[in-house]
Design a protein around this nucleic acid. Structure first.
Lengths: 140, 140
DNA sequence: GTTTTAAATAGGAACAATTTTTAGTTAGTA
DNA sequence: TACTAACTAAAAATTGTTCCTATTTAAAAC
């Protein structure tokens, strides 16, 4: 998603283009590591020393409502935000919480078939595969 | 999972068999509706007027650690608990939060193939498909 | 059957993530 | 340039969950 397309989309819905909003969007939409709101907040504080966590949350929810972001809730820790909204698997370690992505054409095809069988109109999906990562297996 | 098998499993790990614990386990392991801790707590209060929410949480986490329960974290609401640990899809309405299960032999086979391709040792999985349910589509 | 003891429970306090509130500021329109 | 709806920041409130600790209990030892 390039920045001009984003700006257009925000304007269409009547949202203002503020420097904070742009910075938050750019940061999260280009991230590969499923950051938490707090991680985004801390990074942006360097550029915007007065930015508040509430603004970060609000902007992330805006992106979520626009369908550009997936919010991943977890039992014991903060929500994490994923800008990749096409079908992919999160390979998550049950111990350390590390997330890796698995995304192939074959997977997308398989998933599309499954969704077609179910016969619903999909908006978005979340596919988590829980494992113990190599590191955690060793240290145990 | 029948109750004697559960008791054996708890004893093996050195956990005591208390009436509260048994009631919580029986209730959640036989539930089909992904209840929250609070829903379980409120139901059990009829039989155990002094039961505490902390006990419910503790027991649910015990079952989770034993691999008998999946805890589903969500962004804006309580965690929900799912006793079905075999591969199935949660069809979840983005508006009202209703969860329906989709579970077929074909899905299990497809998922097994995907996991095999990834080449990791799976512990458990969470497959969510987000939609707008018919009811919410109408009221909009 | 009684005693022992280690673990579980109840209830409330504490905690942390997130949301709401409010007052002041700003982007975009006319 | 003035206007106004939307935004921001900071603080306060809220909510789900966990922690704390005195009391109770299950199960082992006697």
């Amino acid at each position: 998603m390039d920045i001009h397309h984003l700006i257009t989309k925000l304007r269409e819905k009547g949202h203002k283009i503020t420097p904070q909003r742009l910075a938050i969007c750019e940061l999260v939409l280009s991230s590969k590591d499923h950051p938490t709101a707090d991680q985004i907040y801390k990074k942006l504080k360097q550029k915007f020393p007065t930015i508040s966590l509430a603004t970060v949350y609000q902007t992330l929810h805006l992106l979520k409502d626009l369908g550009l972001l997936l919010e991943l809730g977890f039992p014991d820790c903060s929500a994490r935000f994923d800008p990749n909204i096409s079908p992919h698997i999160h390979i998550i370690c049950l111990k350390c919480g590390k997330i890796e992505d698995y995304e192939t054409e074959n997977l997308k095809e398989q998933w599309a078939k499954i969704v077609k069988d179910i016969g619903v109109e999909p908006i978005i999906q979340r596919l988590d595969l829980y494992i113990y990562c190599d590191k955690c297996k060793k240290n145990q």
